[in-house]
Design a protein around this nucleic acid. Structure first.
Lengths: 151, 151
DNA sequence: CTTGGTGCAAACTCTTTGCAGTAAA
DNA sequence: TTTACTGCAAAGAGTTTGCACCAAG
């Protein structure tokens, strides 16, 4: 069961971060962390709030923002700012990297990865004496489902 | 003089758009358009306001926003939303396409283009049955100047 | 004239922050 | 108890919009 161990590994990572930074263990925070880690890729703050509120009613949006920053700092989440949308967060897979295709009709996000593109990217940067720290490669368009569905 | 003809060609394009959409010819608008087309790549709205105000004092920021949308619609400008920055606009070169490296220290933007990357991008999209409408490929890091300057 | 453009201020959206009350350690 | 966390409301930041006034056609 691969999913089980990934979840376990993430929980451990969070616990470790919590200890390392002397964070308190609170119901609000745990509700958000659980809601985030248990599924839903590329989730928005509002969606996450709704999901976490099912575990801990009365939760506030500000706390979701604050907690996601912690998860980001812990290396468990990455913030995505796609065009024209509010921020989303994505769970990080250790050592993995991918980029995104975003459907402009249904907002679905498809992940893709291409080592060839990454390689070319590094070469281009090198030519300009530029040291890459991070990048953003996003394709906007229409996904397969929307293409066949509409009209 | 290549720049001369490019400027001419842009002015013509703008005139054509203005006629086609029955826009009025106003001092505010022209000040913004001129300020935008005469230079400064990747200019922010505030910078553009300052520049245009030298031609037409009393100009308001809202008008700059409104006018840049027109230029975008006319195919003369493209809006860029780099991470952590306010929107910038870039003059469009007909038929040209490039992506960006953004220095996280000095905010300089370096343009790059790679037909190989574009090609791979198309292939990846095709594999997923995804139809690309536009894309965004941005490298964030440290430019050559900042690398040699700091420390 | 009549239609559209302008500056200003107010509204909006998303995110962040201040604060008093509350719950961990 | 001491310290950090929380929800709320208010503040920010950037952009958009409503409106009365003005100017172009």
């Amino acid at each position: 069961m691969k999913n089980g161990s990934v979840a376990q590994e993430r929980a451990a990572r969070w616990r470790e971060y919590r200890l390392r930074t002397s964070l308190k263990h609170t119901a609000s925070r745990e509700a958000i962390v659980e809601a985030f880690l248990e599924g839903g890729e590329h989730i928005s703050l509002e969606q996450l709030l709704a999901k976490a509120r099912r575990k801990h009613a009365g939760l506030g949006l500000a706390t979701v923002h604050r907690t996601m920053k912690l998860l980001e700092d812990a290396g468990l989440a990455e913030r995505r700012d796609f065009q024209g949308e509010t921020a989303r967060y994505e769970a990080v897979e250790l050592g993995e990297h991918h980029d995104h295709m975003i459907c402009t009709q249904c907002s679905t996000v498809i992940e893709f990865e291409s080592e060839e593109i990454e390689q070319l990217q590094r070469e281009v940067a090198k030519e300009h004496g530029f040291a890459i720290l991070r990048h953003r490669h996003e394709l906007y368009g229409v996904c397969q489902d929307c293409k066949t569905t509409d009209s």
